[in-house]
Design a protein around this nucleic acid. Structure first.
Lengths: 172, 172
DNA sequence: CGTACTTCGTTGAACGCTCAATTTTCTCGG
DNA sequence: CCGAGAAAATTGAGCGTTCAACGAAGTACG
């Protein structure tokens, strides 16, 4: 172990342990709440939420994968399940024979609308209601700083048009 | 939808979208790196890391579940796999017939030591090297604020002794 | 002592995600 | 037009996590 590894200093280690604990518990809390009250995991809620915010409530599978930070495979499995629930409908894209369009159905919108208040309550209760307005800004800046590197990772290609239009207004 | 739900304001929504994106991508990057280079997911790395930091490299399953913020069931499955790899050994607890002790083997320690540099590099590259020292402190405070609520969630009982002793020094 | 209750850990089924093919369609250079 | 390569989406196997159920061992109280 004669390494040139730059280990975490005490401040960084403390922050990292808090971060890992916080993320584990928060994700678990969100998943438990949504699974119990709406019959879907957090990842599926985000798919419905993203679709709901876009004109026509329709997106190409590829774009939907990008804005939900999901692999195509993962999204394909997920949408297959959402379609079985009647919450999403798939149809071929007229402009590009390779693409598939995913559309939020009215049943899907209703499920999302029913789930949203409980979900937002959970997010507030466990995060934002514990933070000062200053800390909200700090959190955004910290995440953006990390994203400057993460968004360039293999397999993560930012979508020029669709992404921005949505992330400005989506509710999470 | 005539609700008294307090929706997220624009600042909160922006922070939340950044946070969700950052967490998804960071977790994915950590899992990919560890799976590729060390043959284990991040959750399993954390189990080995926690064991390695404790006197005797041994913990009761219950305590190990607590400090890794894992359910007992999840930990039980995980340790079963780690034991199959020869990285952890289980034996009955002499003090309490219900309990099981999990001990990090020397092979397990070696696997951890081999995995650590690459993992820390990944954490640095995608997070800490993008943050100012001030932001590191802000991140810790923000996570601690959220943990003040999350740590009290159902199923999460802080361990009086073992937990503190470890979280002061563990490397994540 | 014995009954009720709690704690500890495990198990199996169901489910979601990852990874590595595979198929279909589009694009581009010749 | 044709062939090579890229892009879009899907599929199935393997793995990790969740959830509910269970057995085994400790605790509290009459």
């Amino acid at each position: 172990m004669d390494d040139d590894t730059r280990w975490l200093n005490p401040d960084e280690r403390g922050a990292w342990l808090s971060f890992v604990a916080m993320v584990s518990l928060l994700e678990a809390a969100l998943d438990r709440q949504l699974q119990r009250d709406a019959g879907m995991p957090h990842a599926y809620y985000r798919i419905l939420a993203m679709l709901s915010e876009v004109p026509g409530r329709t997106l190409r599978m590829s774009d939907l994968a990008s804005i939900t930070h999901s692999s195509q495979s993962r999204l394909s499995h997920a949408v297959a399940r959402l379609e079985r629930n009647g919450w999403v409908r798939r149809r071929p894209c007229p402009d590009d024979g390779r693409s598939t369009l995913a559309e939020l159905t009215s049943a899907g919108y209703a499920a999302l609308a029913a789930a949203a208040p409980g979900h937002v309550h959970c997010v507030r209760e466990n995060l934002f209601d514990r933070l000062t307005p200053e800390q909200v800004g700090q959190l955004r800046d910290i995440c953006q700083a990390a994203l400057s590197r993460l968004a360039a990772e293999p397999g993560v290609i930012p979508i020029p048009g669709a992404c921005k239009a949505v992330t400005d207004t989506a509710m999470g």
